[in-house]
Design a binder for these strands. Structure first.
Lengths: 109, 109
DNA sequence: CATATTCGTAACCGTTTGGTTACGGTATTG
DNA sequence: CAATACCGTAACCAAACGGTTACGAATATG
């Protein structure tokens, strides 16, 4: 089961790599949405959004419930903890790099 | 140049999506390495690692310096701040989501 | 000068990805 | 029951991705 867990962690990184999927997560941060509501925020087709949602569900970032013909989607941010944990090992490094860059020209954020 | 900055932020998410590249970053967290040293840690060919390094350099996560025929690679974790900032908006959600989602789950895959 | 070491790049290839259109399945509604 | 609304999936396609081999440039080294 360790391998499966790692595979799922892998998948979370790939899930958030796509800008459309990150935007979907951002929408669901504000409120629950049906699939159609989510799709109406994008210029891409509804089936494309459906595929993104399937992937997001597969990694647990989105949870759904049926309500009539509609399917209501809700954010589950817990899998993002794995990313946060991974990032923690680097935090000290970007603090250090800030110090080293102090006397150089501002790069801009 | 706001668009260029966003594009670069975009690229950071894709850069860390690949497990080999994350492993490279992990190696460089410990010490500086030449390209060959990095490649010796993987079963893939050196040119493949070279391509990963080119991508990592393009997003600023790796900086290099030439030393004879060798090229020394060093970690620059600063671009990861963008990921950290993005994650912060979700932190509150994974803290409170546990109990709220318990009765909501339909399916995970 | 000749040779070896280190590394980047070009060319190519199979797989994955993200998009589309077409279609069907399942409630809700008149 | 017939019609409609909502949504998932299959089939297909162009582009991106990650890998390989082959080659060449640049710098030691004998």
């Amino acid at each position: 089961m360790v391998a499966a867990r790692r595979k799922r962690r892998e998948a979370v990184f790939r899930a958030i790599a796509d800008p459309t999927r990150r935007e979907i997560l951002g929408l669901l941060r504000g409120r629950r949405c049906t699939v159609g509501e989510i799709a109406s925020n994008f210029s891409t087709s509804r089936p494309a959004i459906s595929k993104h949602l399937r992937l997001l569900r597969s990694v647990g970032l989105v949870v759904t419930r049926r309500n009539g013909t509609a399917r209501i989607c809700e954010l589950n941010a817990r899998p993002l903890r794995a990313v946060s944990v991974w990032l923690q090992d680097y935090e000290v490094f970007w603090r250090e790099s800030l110090g080293r860059l102090r006397h150089y020209v501002e790069e801009g954020s």
